[in-house]
């Protein structure tokens, strides 16, 4: 269990006045920064947004693909955008940004989720696995191998999400029949239409009894 952060003391909590809040926040942040920080930061504060940014960010720790990260992010940053834009783990894709396509599927504590609809700060203490963390070195995961063998993709853009979802689908015990696979893989859209091959790939891994 993580520590509960204190509420941001600089938030005046005025309704429907985001701009007033913003200006206030920028001023108060700058003032507090001047009061609290050594000259180095003050110098960086020639653009006041730099200081505002420091105060608007929050610390968050998580483990991604087995590696521990201590990060500082704005609360509004989604897990997906954190992975892609800040950590350069660009294997996870943005297809809709609204939980409607599955391209951003990652595992959080072993469960598949849409990383576009969760905030990075909500992942405190969680273990994240992305497509980059699935293979063991040069040895591909059996589902990755099966996707290549059965051509479970064309353009490849939905593929990281499909594979993360497929691994979870097998682990959950939802790969018992082609019909069940089709239903439980329906949260991952493939516009190239590789569904038949995706089902074949998952079926083979499931029937092969591989540890996934």
């Amino acid at each position: 269990m993580s520590q509960a952060p204190n509420e941001n003391p600089s938030c005046p909590g005025k309704k429907d006045k985001h701009e007033a809040r913003r200006d206030f926040l920028k001023q108060s942040s700058a003032l507090m920064a001047l009061a609290l920080t050594p000259p180095l930061v003050v110098k960086a504060g020639e653009h006041d947004e730099t200081i505002a940014g420091l105060f608007e960010k929050m610390p968050v720790s998580m483990e991604i693909n087995g590696k521990a990260y201590q990060l500082s992010v704005e609360p509004r940053v989604t897990l997906l955008d954190l992975l892609r834009e800040q950590l350069h783990l660009t294997g996870t894709k943005k297809g809709c940004d609204h939980g409607q396509c599955g391209a951003c599927t990652v595992h959080v504590n072993g469960q598949r989720i849409n990383s576009c609809l969760t905030l990075a700060v909500m992942q405190e203490g969680k273990k994240i696995t992305t497509i980059e963390g699935l293979a063991q070195g040069d040895t591909l995961h059996p589902v990755q191998e099966a996707f290549i063998k059965h051509d479970g993709f064309q353009c490849g853009y939905c593929t990281p999400g499909q594979i993360m979802s497929a691994v979870a689908c097998i682990r959950e015990g939802h790969a018992g029949s082609p019909e069940e696979i089709r239903e439980f893989m329906s949260g991952n859209i493939c516009r190239c239409g590789a569904y038949d091959n995706i089902v074949a790939a998952i079926t083979e891994v499931k029937q092969g009894g591989h540890t996934v």
Binding site: L89, T90, G91, T92, T130, I131, E132, L134, A135, L140, Q144, F147, I148, K149, D151, F153, G156, T159, P160, I163
Partner: peptide
């Protein structure tokens, strides 16, 4: 198999 398959399944 696709020559770029490995790149596509590993991100």
């Amino acid at each position: 198999d696709r020559v770029d398959g490995r790149l596509k399944v590993t991100g």
